[in-house]
Design a protein around this nucleic acid. Sequence first.
DNA 1: ATGTGC
Length: 469
Amino acid sequence: MPRLRLTGKALRNIGYPEGPAISVAITAMEKQFRHHSEEAALDILKQVLLDPMAYLADDGLRKVAGKLMETKEEEDIPLKEIPVPYEIYGAGFIETGALQQMNNAVRLPVAVAGALMPDAHHGYGLPIGGVLATHNAVIPYGVGVDIGCRMCLSILDLPVVSLERHAAKFKRELVTQTEFGAGATWVGKTEDAVLEHALFREIPMLRHLHKKAVEQLGTSGSGNHFVEWGIVQITGTNEFNLPAGTYVGLLSHSGSRGLGAQIAAHYTRLARELCQLPRMAQHFAWLELDKEAGQEYWAAMNLAGDYASACHNQIHRRLIKAMDARLLARVENHHNFAWKEIHNGQEVIVHRKGATPAGKGVLGIIPGSMTAPGYIVRGRGEAASLHSASHGAGRAMSRFNAAQSISQYELNKYLKEQGVILVGGGPDEAPMAYKNINEVMAAQSSLVDVIGRFQPRIVRMADDGGKED
DNA sequence: ATGTGC
């Protein structure tokens, strides 16, 4: 006889509020309704949700009903009648789903300002490419599940011709010195100051995550994460004092791995318990920064950011050493994070979820696709964008649609035409699944100045499906 | 994004 297994997600889908009712309901159903199908069990739970009062005398469901009644007494926090106006860059090619999400975000009572970047697309909570400034509030889903996800570019002293002449060695080291996919670990010697952070001892949840953090340090994730060799073209004056010309570059994109994912999950749950919003806005649940939970998330988020940086650092260090190269310059920036910044004379919390910081003079790197160039940019400090720019070209096709409509054959053929070697990856990350980076850059010419380009040549990603075998 | 929730 199959045993009933319910998930919190399934309960949320039928409208169960974040909080104790979910776990109480799962326990009650799995214990006393274990021979029911999931569908039948959810039907029962729906009835309880509609009229908990009627179930207060029911032996099996009394506890669930009780928890629901407690939760019901708390009123949802109302949204603003008049949304905060926000600037949209590249409005012509932003999908409506992303606009709707942003329109909800700027109705939060804590919202102060917002902006939407030209690579925006539908996400969880805040759209990818969404920027939101709030007062005294941090929204875990405004940062995103991959806290501190970032770009890192190393410009090296190797001759550019070596990239073609010794392509096999570059490729071999790219494979040997990286590890990709969910659960990926690095078994070599990994020491890093970030692993000694006091927070790993101070917060119980982080104590449990320390082992995972040690094991995963210096690895890359799945999906759109990559490590690649390519050609950097420095086009004009730059803060690295590099002569204009071409260089070998190493570019990586990844985040805070399991550590950040668990931090995000934990504090998202906590926020949804502490901050009950109308259903359409539930993902925007925030934590107040003058309260303990908010401060704890802030500290943990910053640790995840440092950890993401350390991961890139390890990867670059290994590869630079393996190629016997020297580092000439580095550009690095988060694009899933929250910062305390002053805008309009007021300290606000700026959430950038898939958006590159672009304060005046701030350097960043905006990748294109595995065949299209990425851009090294210098922020112009545009107030209307909240000192932000896009974090890439943005998807033109969902991962699912891309996997359905682009064949591996078609991808291989295109890569060959473009002279790009790919290890791992798959149609869901094909260049055709992304917007035209040049159009996206044109839509944000008021936000950043371009000081260089990066053309990918040898790209490493997680194998299709996310896991390394 | 992540070894995929109590």
